[in-house]
Simulated scan of single mutants.
Amino acid sequence: MISDIGVLAENSKGRAFPEAPDEVRTCFQRDIDRITYSKSFRRLKHKTQVFLQPEGDHYRTRLTHTLEVTRIARTISRALMLNEDLTEAIGLGHDLGHTPFGHAGERALCEIYTCGFRHYEQSLRVVDRLEKSGKGLNLCFETRMGILNHTKGAPDDSAEAIAVRLADRIAYINHDVDDAIRAGILTAADIPKEVRARIGERHSTRIDAIIRDVIEASREGEVRMSDDMAQAVELFHDFLFEKVYRNPTAKGEEAKVSKILGAIWDYYLKNPDKLPPDYRSIADTEGVPRAVCDYVSGMSDDYAVYTFSNIYIPAAWQVK
Results as ranks from 00 to 15, higher is better:
I170L: 13
A183P: 07
G200K: 07
K193Q: 10
D213N: 15
I199E: 00
K193H: 10
D190C: 08
E194W: 01
I170M: 09
I181C: 05
I170N: 00
E194L: 09
D208K: 14
V177C: 15
D157R: 07
S226E: 04
E216C: 11
S218M: 13
R219W: 02
G134W: 06
F141N: 06
F141C: 09
V127E: 03
I181F: 08
D128T: 12
Q231V: 12
A159W: 02
F239Y: 12
K251F: 03
I162M: 12
S218C: 02
A197M: 08
D228T: 14
K193E: 10
D179T: 10
R144M: 08
Q231A: 15
A232C: 04
V214I: 14
H203E: 12
R169G: 00
D227W: 04
K152Q: 10
D238Y: 09
H150P: 00
E242C: 09
S226C: 01
L148C: 00
E222Q: 13
T143V: 10
S226F: 07
H175W: 06
V177S: 15
R129P: 01
L186Y: 13
I170F: 10
E160T: 00
K132E: 15
Y172G: 02
M229F: 15
A180E: 02
R144I: 13
R219S: 11
R144W: 06
G200Q: 08
I210M: 14
A250N: 06
A217N: 04
I181T: 10
V195M: 07
R202L: 05
N247L: 02
A217G: 01
I191A: 06
F239W: 04
S218K: 12
K243A: 03
I173R: 11
I185E: 04
I162P: 00
E160L: 05
R182S: 02
Q231D: 12
V244E: 08
V164S: 01
A232H: 04
S226D: 05
N138P: 07
H175A: 01
D157W: 03
E194S: 14
I207T: 13
K251E: 11
T249W: 11
Y172K: 09
F141A: 08
I199T: 08
R206C: 02
E234Q: 12
A180M: 07
K135F: 06
F141H: 15
D156F: 13
R198V: 07
F239M: 08
P192K: 06
A250T: 02
M229A: 07
R219L: 14
G134M: 06
R219E: 04
L137I: 14
Y172C: 05
N138D: 02
I210Y: 01
E194T: 14
R206N: 03
